[in-house]
Nucleic acid binder design. Structure first.
Lengths: 252, 252
DNA sequence: ACCTGAACACCGTTCAAGT
DNA sequence: ACCTGAACACCGTTCAAGT
């Protein structure tokens, strides 16, 4: 009387095809092999179907990437803002974002930078970030800026981390990459690059975690130290918008 | 007596295949159609040969990208440091970098973020950046940091700019994208996202150029306002390096 | 020695044909 | 109505075969 139980032992209950199931399968592949490994064909294969079937539920690869990012963002924990601990809460929120985009789902940072995501789960994180900055006493303008800059910062760091972790098949290659960079900066030609050579040790010093935290403090302190009032109301330079970079938004 | 002049009128002197010619052709395609349009096959076609021929001169796609970035970096002008104008010189250097990576060669920013480049032309730019920061009175440690953060910042902005410019075929799509983001922030649900809703106007205000300059000032001022001495000498957290993110460099 | 045609193992996306 | 096999137009890379 039950539905035909033909070889259901392999997968403990193959889920019916649906948008959610597709995104879940995509994230599973991303978690195990990185976002790069998620292709429409590979994903279809994991779902025991052909690539064409996916297009019934997602418009295409780009739409799938947006769904993956938005769903993954839902896994990032968000604390209620405690005004007394705003800075530490902000540090740890950014750390969780970074972990999600490079440890949990290697390569996810790329998707975060490729578009400005505005889904509910991402908005939840943005809300928390802005709330923490306001708790820290930032002006509206400064807090709005911090959202931009801090997101870029954590995205860039996470992206870089993914690159180190990606070719993890060959642990020797990671060491070689490090060696290459180390040599370039510490052993830079003092004739052509005197400042690089002088600062070489300073550029290589310090572990990743402390550098990350320091970068965040630099941005936070910079926001506090930089007067913003009025700056953004200034009219653009007189001679046409094409002269400046980045240009103004099109259409105004 | 001259070499056979068979149909040399089409191209005003087809250059012989060489590493330089290949990179030059790749950059020409990148300038006209963006870095994304540069594929081994498309490039081979532009050089009147088959894709296999390219592998005699460049190891593969990744190596080609490195060569493109390094060669393009050579086009970024670098001024001699004038200590009295360090801040303005830094602003304009970063602007030229951003223009190169998004206007001149759309999509180049992606290549800059995908690896840490250490070629001569890139080092020239790094040297100038560090020299300007030292002229501004930054400590060695602070200047070394600024190199990292400012490079990330300009790369992230340039990447974002490329995305707006990329689907320029459809100018209406750009407006729609702007509309989408504008609505998400300005018209955010005040119930779920009170801070986003309150700050919405501040997040959208201001033209690109002024935002860019402001971001740079934030980072510079933050470097000045953040004490670094000692922070990077601290030993890592006690309980194993896997507990922190980003992790320490492998192998030490 | 230098070059490359043809093949291999992949992509994303579409659409006519099936159930 | 829902699904998909097979095809289309691409990729990067390799290698045996040509000059």
């Amino acid at each position: 009387m039950a539905t035909t139980p033909r070889s259901r032992r392999d997968r403990p209950a193959k889920p019916a095809l649906s948008r959610e199931a597709i995104v879940a399968a995509a994230l599973e592949i991303a978690a195990e092999e990185g976002v790069e490994a998620v292709t429409m064909r590979r994903l279809a294969q994991a779902l025991d179907t052909g690539p064409a079937s996916l297009y019934v539920y997602v418009a295409g690869r780009e739409a799938l990437e947006e769904l993956m990012l938005e769903t993954a963002a839902g896994e990032v924990e968000v604390e209620e803002t405690d005004p007394e601990r705003w800075r530490e809460q902000l540090h740890s929120l950014l750390e969780r974002m970074g972990r999600m985009m490079s440890e949990r789902y290697p390569g996810m940072a790329k998707l975060g930078m490729a578009r400005i995501p505005v889904g509910d789960n991402v908005m939840r994180i943005t809300e928390s970030m802005l709330s923490l900055l306001k708790a820290g006493g930032a002006s509206d303008q400064a807090a709005a800026y911090a959202g931009d800059i801090l997101s870029m910062y954590v995205g860039a760091i996470a992206y870089e981390q993914s690159l180190y972790a990606q070719p993890a098949d060959d642990p020797e290659a990671i060491g070689a990459e490090h060696e290459r960079i180390h040599r370039a900066f510490v052993a830079a030609d003092p004739g052509r690059y005197p400042t690089v050579a002088a600062l070489g040790p300073a550029m290589v010093r310090g572990d990743g975690h402390e550098r990350f935290r320091l970068g965040i403090d630099v941005i936070i302190n910079g926001l506090i130290a930089t007067p913003m009032d009025g700056r953004l109301s200034e009219p653009p330079a007189a001679l046409g918008d094409e002269e400046v970079w980045p240009p103004d938004a099109p259409k105004g």
